[in-house]
Deep mutational scan, measured.
Amino acid sequence: MMITLRKLPLAVAVAAGVMSAQAMAVDFHGYARSGIGWTGSGGEQQCFQTTGAQSKYRLGNECETYAELKLGQEVWKEGDKSFYFDTNVAYSVAQQNDWEATDPAFREANVQGKNLIEWLPGSTIWAGKRFYQRHDVHMIDFYYWDISGPGAGLENIDVGFGKLSLAATRSSEAGGSSSFASNNIYDYTNETANDVFDVRLAQMEINPGGTLELGVDYGRANLRDNYRLVDGASKDGWLFTAEHTQSVLKGFNKFVVQYATDSMTSQGKGLSQGSGVAFDNEKFAYNINNNGHMLRILDHGAISMGDNWDMMYVGMYQDINWDNDNGTKWWTVGIRPMYKWTPIMSTVMEIGYDNVESQRTGDKNNQYKITLAQQWQAGDSIWSRPAIRVFATYAKWDEKWGYDYTGNADNNANFGKAVPADFNGGSFGRGDSDEWTFGAQMEIWW
């Protein structure tokens, strides 16, 4: 008995050590931004985005507190085989008060198993909700290839000249389909599951310092038995992507060409959309029709120009041509140079221009935006974070068209359509004006 009692403290210590080691193995990653800002004409900070554009130049032009908190852990490992559990909870508030209630979004919860298939060394099996191989332009917060959501897949299969990845994910639309009631009355209240099937071939070395990635995505509306879509709904579509990445000037340049059809055009990033119906009456549900095509040509990157200068840049042309004439032509160009006074202090400027032409009206909206920021960051790279910055932003815009969301679809035949700025004596778009804002912001990723 005495021997047992003497061994007990040692056993407890060993158990505590094991539990401590396991606790220390938890990975904590994430992203956050928050700050305070004012508008020159009075009131809180207002942000500037061109009507019809899918993004905006973000430096000194973000008006919310946003965070993603990721917890993950390698829960099992034997040799080169392992299982990893990953989670991500995100939230966004308007940064107007101390207490701002919000419903967090559970954006990731997945398990990734590496090297589980003997004859596919280096590959990963995964299932669950996941940010899946996302491609974006940081300076405009624009995701041009992103099929994230609940799904499953097999990735990084070594095929000799590259890595092959296969995945299936889902994005549902509210009110996407109906069941038959009586007297030809349909009640569009059932969600429609939109499935996306993704095939990618990446890391193909085609020139010194250059790699090529090719991808095909097929999206479709997956209806339940005895349900139907509204007439004209976009049932399926394709997205084709080619991306060349070149190492240059201690950074990279990415050149991207994408072509999409029908349900893959509205978001243009790989998620299927077009079966959703915002109104019970299918007579007024025309606005979900996105049959047509999209072409996107994009070049972006980040480079170092000597010891003291870094720069991000982007140039993009996007043409969404829809059968219902509600598409757009959008082109944007911008730069973000950074001058480093010390390894932790810099001055950053961002200059961006957007131009969006309405397919329906032929009119154009444009905006110039310039931001000057003094910044303190954890390192001497344009990617170094955390960063604390004080900024001043000036924007000038001239908008000739907007979307008509007055009333509702039952009493407005133009609901959701592009109209000229002065349509029917109204005021659509943001008109011709300018404004400036100033404030302070922190940004961090880890």
Rank of each mutant, 00 (worst) to 15 (best):
M2R: 12
L5P: 12
L5M: 04
R6L: 12
K7N: 08
P9T: 09
P9L: 12
L10P: 10
V12G: 04
V12D: 10
A13D: 06
V14L: 07
A15P: 13
A15S: 07
A15T: 01
A16P: 13
A16E: 03
G17A: 10
M19I: 09
S20A: 05
A21D: 08
A21S: 09
Q22E: 05
Q22P: 06
Q22H: 04
A23S: 04
A23G: 05
M24T: 02
M24R: 08
M24V: 03
A25V: 02
A25D: 01
V26A: 00
D27A: 07
F28V: 10
H29Y: 03
G30C: 03
G30V: 05
A32P: 14
A32G: 09
R33G: 02
G35V: 03
G35D: 01
W38L: 06
T39R: 10
T39K: 07
G42V: 05
G42S: 04
E44K: 01
E44G: 09
Q46L: 13
Q46R: 04
C47F: 08
T51P: 14
G52S: 01
G52D: 00
A53S: 12
K56I: 15
L59P: 01
G60S: 03
G60R: 13
N61Y: 14
N61I: 13
E62K: 09
C63F: 15
T65N: 13
L71F: 08
G72S: 02
G72C: 08
Q73L: 08
V75A: 10
K77I: 02
G79R: 14
D80V: 12
D80E: 11
D86V: 06
Y91H: 14
S92P: 14
V93I: 01
Q95R: 01
Q96E: 09
N97Y: 02
N97T: 15
D98A: 09
D98G: 14
D98Y: 07
W99C: 13
E100D: 08
D103Y: 14
P104L: 10
E108G: 02
A109E: 14
A109V: 07
N110K: 15
V111L: 15
Q112K: 15
W119R: 13
L120R: 13
T124I: 04
T124S: 15
G128D: 00
V137I: 08
V137D: 08
H138L: 00
I140T: 15
I140S: 14
D141Y: 15
F142C: 07
F142I: 06
G149D: 01
G149V: 09
A152D: 14
A152V: 10
A152S: 14
A152T: 12
G153C: 11
L154Q: 14
N156T: 15
V159A: 15
V159F: 13
F161I: 11
F161C: 15
G162C: 12
G162D: 03
A167E: 13
A168E: 15
R170L: 13
R170H: 04
A174T: 12
G176S: 00
G176D: 00
S177T: 11
S179A: 14
A181G: 14
S182T: 14
N183I: 11
Y186H: 03
T189P: 15
N190T: 10
N190K: 01
E191D: 10
E191G: 08
T192N: 13
T192S: 15
T192I: 04
N194S: 05
D195N: 04
V196L: 05
V196I: 08
R200L: 10
A202S: 15
M204L: 03
N207S: 10
G209V: 12
T211I: 12
T211A: 15
E213G: 01
L214M: 05
V216D: 09
D217Y: 10
Y218S: 12
Y218F: 13
R220C: 01
R220P: 03
D225N: 02
N226I: 03
N226S: 07
Y227H: 10
Y227F: 06
V230A: 11
V230L: 03
V230G: 05
G232V: 11
G232D: 05
A233P: 07
K235R: 10
D236N: 11
G237D: 00
T241P: 08
A242T: 02
A242D: 08
H244L: 13
Q246R: 00
V248I: 03
V248A: 14
K250E: 11
K250N: 13
F252C: 04
N253I: 03
F255I: 10
F255L: 11
F255C: 14
V256A: 03
V256L: 07
V256D: 00
V257F: 05
A260S: 04
D262Y: 03
D262G: 08
Q267K: 11
Q267R: 06
Q267L: 05
G268A: 06
G268R: 03
K269R: 05
K269T: 15
G270R: 00
L271R: 07
Q273H: 04
G274D: 00
G274A: 06
G274C: 11
G276V: 08
V277A: 13
V277G: 14
F279V: 14
D280G: 14
N281S: 08
N281I: 14
K283E: 14
F284Y: 13
Y286C: 08
I288F: 15
N289H: 04
N289Y: 04
N289I: 09
N290I: 02
N290T: 13
N290H: 10
N291H: 05
N291I: 04
H293L: 04
H293N: 05
H293P: 03
M294V: 02
M294L: 10
L295P: 00
R296L: 05
R296S: 05
D299Y: 06
I303N: 00
G306R: 02
D307V: 07
D307Y: 08
D307N: 03
D307E: 11
N308D: 02
N308I: 01
N308K: 02
W309C: 08
D310N: 01
D310G: 06
M311I: 06
M312T: 10
Y313N: 00
V314G: 04
G315A: 04
G315C: 04
G315D: 00
M316I: 04
M316L: 01
D319N: 04
I320S: 12
N321I: 07
D323G: 08
D325Y: 08
D325V: 09
G327D: 01
G327S: 03
K329R: 08
W330L: 03
W330G: 05
W331C: 03
T332S: 12
V333G: 05
G334S: 01
I335N: 00
I335F: 04
R336L: 06
P337T: 06
Y339C: 01
Y339S: 09
W341L: 06
T342P: 04
T342R: 02
I344L: 12
I344V: 05
T347A: 03
T347I: 00
V348A: 01
V348E: 10
M349L: 08
Y353D: 12
D354A: 04
D354V: 02
D354N: 02
N355K: 09
N355S: 08
N355T: 08
V356G: 12
E357V: 09
Q359L: 05
Q359K: 13
T361I: 01
G362D: 00
D363V: 13
K364E: 00
N365H: 14
N365Y: 07
Q367K: 10
K369E: 00
T371N: 07
A373E: 15
A373T: 00
A373S: 10
A378S: 08
G379V: 12
G379R: 13
G379C: 15
D380Y: 14
I382N: 12
W383R: 06
W383C: 12
R385H: 03
R389S: 05
V390F: 13
T393N: 00
W397C: 05
W397R: 09
D398Y: 08
E399G: 02
K400I: 06
G402C: 07
Y403H: 07
Y405F: 07
Y405S: 12
T406S: 12
N408I: 12
A409V: 03
A409P: 12
A409T: 02
D410G: 15
N411I: 09
N411S: 04
N411T: 14
N412Y: 02
A413V: 06
A413T: 09
A413S: 10
G416C: 11
G416D: 04
G416S: 09
K417E: 03
A418T: 07
P420T: 15
A421V: 01
A421T: 10
F423L: 13
F423S: 11
N424T: 15
G425C: 13
F428I: 14
D432A: 09
S433G: 11
D434N: 14
D434Y: 13
W436L: 14
W436C: 14
F438L: 11
G439V: 13
A440S: 12
A440T: 15
M442I: 11
W446R: 15
